[in-house]
Design a protein around this nucleic acid. Structure first.
Length: 601
RNA sequence: GGCCCCAUCGUCUAGUGGCCUAGGACACCACCCUCUCAAGGUGGAGGCACGGGUUCGAAUCCCGUUGGGGCUGCCA
């Protein structure tokens, strides 16, 4: 059992490693380094009718769908769940910087499960296998979240398997804490995965084998050109920037400073058949001889991505449109490695900023975590994210994840980029907040209240009494504390603007004095307070809204908040009277109660 | 520069040749409700980028233009 502890979660993440009867690693790996030998699939590509129990599916199954596990690596059933929470899900506690240890950890390579296994989990399987393959190079991105969600929806909607893979081939940029961020983000969103996480950093042997195969068959070659040389040659020859295939026929052997480049075909075209965009043609001559292995021997994304999709039997690649131009390279590599039939592709439209540029970590607010911290609900985030690039036919936009699974279809995904609009997110968050059961709302608001500087003055019981009124007035959980802070502060947090307006009005003193008198004796519950304040208002000859305003500011410090009389009730007579008195003191000046006092009786 | 993708209200979308005088949602405006603020209700303003075709008929199909974006890394 490998266990990752996420500081900030009450429960540790953990995933099982096989403990019994699994084929030993390595021994059953096909030998890939023999020149001329195509890379065999780890699983038979010929579906066996007897074992492939076809189900009705929304989409035509991939040729490899429902292919049963062949003897060998996949002979033994993997653990029923690869990633589980032992016990209740972590609280909605605020994220802190978290650290995952240890890392790298043993790679759960033998985990590859057959579709049959997932079927045992109680889901209808079609054998479609989708993966979400983020790289741990920064805070988890809302665009990644959308991609993960669409993969998850496609998997869950079609009875497929959802695989999580961490693409950490770039040791320089990858950081272990980002891995924890990915896991925690997916967990928060409720996007559970069936397999993985697989770590590319644990599979370098496999990529070396693939690289050796490509080099051995002449589909790749070693190159010693530096970036500077390449740029200079292009410049001097007046060619557009790009590699000139200089080393392609030099027959170099591996060596220091040398990278392995894939030799792309010089003619013909590669056609990408995309489920969202249709068929997209690329002339092979436009695809440069791209690097697949660094001079350090480490594989590049292009290679490891293909090898993993092959090994992990991915049938459907759903990713951002920024990968569309990579796809012909993917396909060429796939073919050169002797892979079975290609996966299906679906390239999702990008998420863009207000200037309609791809969302960037640098200039845009993209960290999912920051939205979580601000009190956005995972339900709202999923709901909103799903609508970025897709819309339900019936127009009903407020959808739970279960409803999304029901209605979502990759084929209906839009083609054009979408802007991440905070205001609409706010609207959805308000809806989901109001849908929460009272106790649930209270529970989720708790972390935001407890982190306030009220110290031990916070009192859950008082909050509970006002919570339902707060619930329907906030758009995010972050707004909750300001709604109820007057309950937990010695003196209300007087808002300058509100106080200025109040103190500038000569009638304020009259109202506050009258209220103080009234509240000294009135029966202390909201209905009575309201009724009596209304009568007071009539006696003063002013509308209730004009009367409640000074009282509200004096008692709560703010001009807006939960309904006043409930607030007074919870605060209690003593504190209300004290605050009215303090406000009157602050108002200063001569008491002019006589002038405005209502006729006695 | 080269290659590729995209184009319906400000934003997210419905629309796949006639049902479109283009529907919904967010935001906005007005009114109603109302102890503040929200929520809710009613109504309003607002769009098929442009130009050519094809067709009896085009938001929808084709071509072009323009505009936007992505890729073009020993990042993913």
């Amino acid at each position: 059992m490998v266990r990752l502890c996420l500081i900030g979660s009450r429960q540790p993440f953990s995933w099982c490693t096989p403990t019994d009867g699994l084929a030993s690693r390595g021994g059953t790996l096909p030998a890939l380094h023999q020149a001329g030998r195509p890379l065999p699939a780890l699983v038979g590509s010929e579906p066996k009718a007897s074992r492939s129990r076809r189900r009705t599916t929304r989409h035509p199954p991939h040729p490899r769908a429902a292919a049963p596990a062949k003897a060998g690596l996949l002979r033994h059933p993997p653990p029923s769940r690869c990633c589980v929470y032992p016990g209740p899900r972590p609280s909605q506690g605020l994220l802190r910087t978290h650290r995952v240890k240890p890392w790298p950890h043993p790679f759960p390579y033998e985990h590859l499960s057959s579709p049959a296994q997932a079927r045992d989990d109680g889901r209808e399987m079609t054998g479609a296998r989708l993966r979400f393959a983020p790289s741990p190079t920064g805070l988890f991105h809302v665009g990644s979240a959308r991609t993960a969600l669409y993969n998850w929806l496609a998997a869950r909607g079609g009875g497929g398997v959802f695989v999580l893979r961490i693409e950490d081939t770039d040791a320089e940029r990858g950081r272990e804490e980002w891995v924890g961020g990915i896991l925690e983000a997916l967990d928060w969103l409720g996007l559970d995965w069936d397999e993985g996480p697989y770590f590319q950093s644990q599979r370098s042997e496999r990529y070396s084998e693939a690289a050796a195969l490509l080099a051995g068959t002449g589909r790749a070659y070693w190159c010693e050109c530096t970036r500077e040389e390449i740029d200079r040659r292009a410049r001097e020859a007046g060619r557009p920037p790009g590699y000139d295939r200089c080393c392609r026929d030099r027959g170099l052997s591996p060596g220091p400073g040398r990278v392995l480049r894939f030799a792309t075909p010089l003619d013909g075209e590669t056609v990408v058949d995309d489920r969202i965009r249709g068929s997209v043609k690329f002339a092979n001559r436009d695809i440069e001889d791209f690097v697949i292995v660094r001079s350090t021997g480490a594989p590049l994304f292009l290679l490891s991505n293909v090898v993993d999709d092959m090994d992990q039997l991915i049938s459907d690649v759903v990713r951002g449109e920024d990968h569309l131009s990579n796809t012909p390279k993917y396909q060429l590599l796939w073919e050169a490695l002797g892979g079975p039939s290609l996966p299906r592709f679906a390239h999702l439209p990008m998420l863009v900023n207000e200037k309609r540029q791809k969302l960037s970590k640098r200039r845009d607010k993209v960290a999912l975590e920051s939205y979580r911290e601000q009190g956005y609900l995972a339900e709202a985030m999923c709901n909103y994210l799903a609508l970025l690039g897709w819309g339900p036919e019936d127009g009903e936009e407020v959808l739970s994840k279960a409803e999304l699974v029901e209605k979502f279809s990759l084929e209906k995904v839009n083609h054009s980029p979408a802007f991440f609009d905070l205001r609409k997110l706010d609207h959805f968050n308000g809806i989901w907040l109001r849908r929460l059961a009272a106790e649930e709302f209270e529970e989720r608001a708790l972390p935001y209240l407890e982190r306030q500087a009220w110290g031990n003055r916070f009192d859950r019981a008082s909050f509970r009494r006002l919570a339902p009124l707060v619930q329907e007035r906030v758009a995010t959980l972050e707004e909750v504390p300001a709604m109820v802070d007057f309950l937990f502060l010695d003196r209300p947090a007087l808002q300058d603007r509100d106080w200025a307006k109040l103190s500038g009005d000569p009638s304020t003193r009259t109202v506050l004095q009258a209220a103080a008198e009234l509240y000294g004796t009135v029966s202390w519950d909201a209905p009575m307070l309201e009724a009596e304040t209304r009568r007071l208002s009539e006696r003063l000859g002013r509308p209730l809204r004009k009367t409640q305003a000074p009282i509200r500011v004096a008692v709560t410090g703010r001009a807006v908040g939960p309904p006043l009389f409930e607030s007074l009730e919870v605060l209690g007579r003593e504190r209300v009277l004290r605050r009215l008195g303090e406000a009157l003191d602050m108002l200063g000046g001569p008491a002019r109660a006589e002038e405005h006092a209502p006729p006695a009786g």
